[in-house]
Design a protein around this nucleic acid. Sequence first.
DNA 1: TTGAAAGCGCTAACAC
DNA 2: GTGTTAGCGCTTTCAA
Lengths: 355, 355
Amino acid sequence: MPGRVTIADVATRAGVHKATVSRALNARTQHQVNTATVKRVQRAARELGYVPNVIARGLRTSLSMTIGVILPDLTNPLFPPIVRGIESHLSGRSYTALVVNTDGKDDAELAAFDSLLERRVDGLIVATGKVEHPLLADAYARGIPVVMLNRGTARGEYPLVVGDDAKGVTDAVEHLVRLGHRDLVHLAGPADFTTSLARSEAFTAAARRHPGLKHSIILASAFSIAAGEATMAELLARPEELPTAVVAGNDLIAVGVLRALRAHGLATPGDVSVVGFNDMPFAEDLNPPLTTVHIPHHEMGVQAARLLLEGIESGAQHGITITLPAELVVRSSTAQPREHSIRGPLTHDSTPSSS
Amino acid sequence: MPGRVTIADVATRAGVHKATVSRALNARTQHQVNTATVKRVQRAARELGYVPNVIARGLRTSLSMTIGVILPDLTNPLFPPIVRGIESHLSGRSYTALVVNTDGKDDAELAAFDSLLERRVDGLIVATGKVEHPLLADAYARGIPVVMLNRGTARGEYPLVVGDDAKGVTDAVEHLVRLGHRDLVHLAGPADFTTSLARSEAFTAAARRHPGLKHSIILASAFSIAAGEATMAELLARPEELPTAVVAGNDLIAVGVLRALRAHGLATPGDVSVVGFNDMPFAEDLNPPLTTVHIPHHEMGVQAARLLLEGIESGAQHGITITLPAELVVRSSTAQPREHSIRGPLTHDSTPSSS
DNA sequence: TTGAAAGCGCTAACAC
DNA sequence: GTGTTAGCGCTTTCAA
């Protein structure tokens, strides 16, 4: 069976030494070989179905041509476009991405990191966004280039690619204020994510620019639908204090908010306006279509990959930050604030919100 | 810098030969080494920050401990859960998955396949679902185990993991008939996907069981929102022939159908009932919440990985098919058929359906 | 322009 | 139980 065809087989068939085959088949060294020989070698390779062994090459060159991508959960619709962006930049450059999920757990992150080290990845894109990263120091010590994606480290010694969180949140707040809202809540993600911080700070700063605007921040336990729904349910337990608009930490939280409102018999945006963050796929197909901040995720992946490859090839890393534009996409989950008052207790519909 | 620590360094530090280190660090050969020596070696390894080089090991054992996953598009929400299922089975067994996207293009598929071959993947999970697969013969010739996921080959010589398409579609049809529908259209995926075939056949078979039931099949150009929307728009151009219910080839097509209906000022399910297929994430958050066929995607990934590893480890492949249960999830996009008639021409709202 | 030889880091016979 | 040796498939000096 073929598949076991090596450079030696090609050499024999072409009647040259295997070193010559290596040179002939490698774009960078091809010019050192007689054109006729190159042709002969290529033909022999094709006839035998030869496929270069990247593993063996990697052992010799100590380059795996592989980069590791560490993210919390591929199932979060935010990440597939990022991954595809990364791959679109890599694929033409004969790099491959190895994607691992951590589910936000430190031990899983460590295990993932180890498995990437074992495979001698040439670089790392880290998109888990925890404020603290034990493994980063390790990567640094081992001289492995790292690019942070979406969420930076506390110290910021690595290249970083982010969406413009501050602008996005600010635009969201301005949009709501312009609609007439005077009572806003930011339902933020957990405090150990740098994005939560960035968005929270932007929220407060934007709100303060409007005297008399009531605003507060509540932390959800995760960037998830369930966390959004649970946290919103707590808010709904005190209907007299219900804000007229909620700025969610991300779209997943926003979906949770929508579910909670529906379960309590409230209308969006009739009773409460909701803004998300990310503009994930299907945001426009939600009920109601979600007003949210669009972040160019594919492009974030591309930029991260580009930065990483630069770092790998130059051997030097600088702590540059690339901020990609955020843009508010106004759909139907935001409108003028309600004029009626909401009195408790609310019907808490315990059946699934989808029914 | 560490990271360049090899087995030889550990050997020196532990005062043993590198072969002993290899044995001591490998679970399978560890018993051949004196317990005290094992401890010493482990300590030395830890102190030096030694990380085994899977690449080098792979070169020696001709096992890359890597499997390739070929799919159309990670951005299709159907796939992330599958990928995670695959990984959850692999990770504990020290295998890693290399995921590549083809976007349904044959040349991209070939390129992806090549890059996986170059990396000497030990096996392949193919989830692109084309009826014809030029590369499969190649993989077979090279002795690379392959498992088909979601969509089988025309001939079926490989292990196959699928959802129970027939049951799912049948249940959907029965559900609609029970609601009183007598005029159904199946908006199927393209003909060169085996799932399209399976679902179409099941649709026709189920419909024929009900005398007097009007039913027809229309092919969408892709399993995508855009294709679903475009195809549904064509149907809506002849409102007098509009069916009372649409069974979509998958959820993406269903989303397109929902968009088209909304754009034409029609209500779901008031004017037309819609059923999807897959129960992708957020299906319950659509407007309206989508009645669809749930397929256990994560489990499909697990089973595919299990089958593949069995094939790799036994060296033998058998053409077994694992069918996972499909279950209709009734939400709010289906109801009794309309009793009013729909007269054209419909308002074709050309602004985005999300506005 | 091509060949010879060494070696990347590891494991697997085979000795001892 | 441990050391010796060879070699996985490739690239890269160094010679010719």
